[in-house]
Write a protein that binds this DNA or RNA. Structure first.
Lengths: 209, 209
DNA sequence: GTCTATACATCGATAGAC
DNA sequence: GTCTATCGATGTATAGAC
């Protein structure tokens, strides 16, 4: 027994069983939420006994915390990370921003697990504020910071407050997929993504020379 | 027994007991979510026995559906309804939009129940898609439609696509409070609301004569 | 109509065999 | 380490007295 049972932030090597348990826990928690997920079903989904689950994780809360940390760092941490790579410096801002927006929208639209993850983070943010914290700090903040840095490095855009513009850019995109996909608003409030992205980019780069 | 046990959309008179039950159900469901709320606690919060709860509502799901419908129509239905009243026609668009944005941000920031409601709708949108549907149809769509109608009636703004601009406007504001309040991102990603609203309005009315 | 009491399933967590 | 078996608590829902 040399497992760290309540590892909060640090990474570590995981045994095959532990990885299987986290895999089953991901399926169950993403599908049913925290309270509606039972440790029996996690054990069954992982192909182990319930006692084995408790030998690797202290309790249900500890398993959930470990899972979310893993999802934040490994599963979804790399999705938006490389959106602004190095060769973005050469292209025009409207091209870079369009590619960024399209990639973000596609990522969420095609990845059902990412939608379930958004439901989980928002839905459990009242009872697990530290998980929402990890999500904001490690998934949202890097995107906002790097995009702010990029916009600030484009003086021809003449943006007086790049960081606020980034909030508008990201907020419009995320709320769009939240409304269309997560909340199933596609049929009630249809809006093509090209149309949204076109208007969004036009607003930002309208003052360009 | 003349209660409609599965009233989906239509309103009706409610007995005092039924109102007390819905009041208790609101407290419990908003605080703990669907799965983590027990019918025992709902009954206790309402001051009635559990059997009385089941005499007014078919089961837990029926009670939850009735509650959300009630919240959508009565509790939160009037918050954003009167944001664009008749005397908005006289004022300048930047004044109207600023008042609208400030009222929306204040409503969510000061109303903890509204934040809990957002957590509940998003969190349960996977298992209760029809409730997310009711939320979009009766709370989001009216706001988007009336604001679109307003922007389209202001030709001096020279907006080629008012509806898309509305998505950007609403999306920026809602995602802001989602990030700051619901997901507790205030300390990690600080952003004053005046700063966001200033930039948002400047983007939209920049082409005004 | 509303209550008490209870049926029956499932929950989280653990003991003890191997 | 991993299993089976089980504990006590709590879940939803209902039966029956009043």
């Amino acid at each position: 027994m040399e497992h760290r049972k309540d590892s909060s932030t640090d990474r570590q090597e995981l045994s095959e069983k532990a990885k299987a348990i986290l895999e089953g826990a991901m399926r169950e928690f993403l599908a049913h939420g925290y309270a509606a997920t039972s440790m029996d079903r996690v054990a069954a989904a992982a192909g182990v006994s319930k006692a084995t689950v408790y030998s690797h994780f202290k309790d249900k809360e500890g398993l959930f915390n470990a899972l979310i940390q893993r999802l934040v760092y490994e599963r979804f941490g790399t999705i938006f990370g490389s959106l602004l790579d190095s060769h973005s410096a050469q292209a025009e801002p409207r091209v870079v921003l369009r590619r960024l927006a399209t990639n973000m929208l596609d990522s969420v639209t095609t990845d059902g697990q990412l939608q379930a993850f958004m439901r989980l983070i928002v839905g459990e943010s009242g009872r697990f504020p530290e998980l929402a914290n990890a999500y904001v700090r490690n998934l949202v903040k890097p995107v906002i910071d790097s995009l702010t840095h990029y916009l600030a490095s484009q003086p021809q855009l003449k943006l007086s407050d790049p960081e606020a513009i980034v909030r508008i850019f990201i907020g419009s995109l995320i709320y769009h997929v939240l409304l269309q996909e997560v909340l199933h608003g596609k049929e009630i409030l249809p809006m093509e993504r090209e149309r949204l992205v076109d208007n969004l980019i036009s607003l930002i780069v309208c003052k360009e020379d």
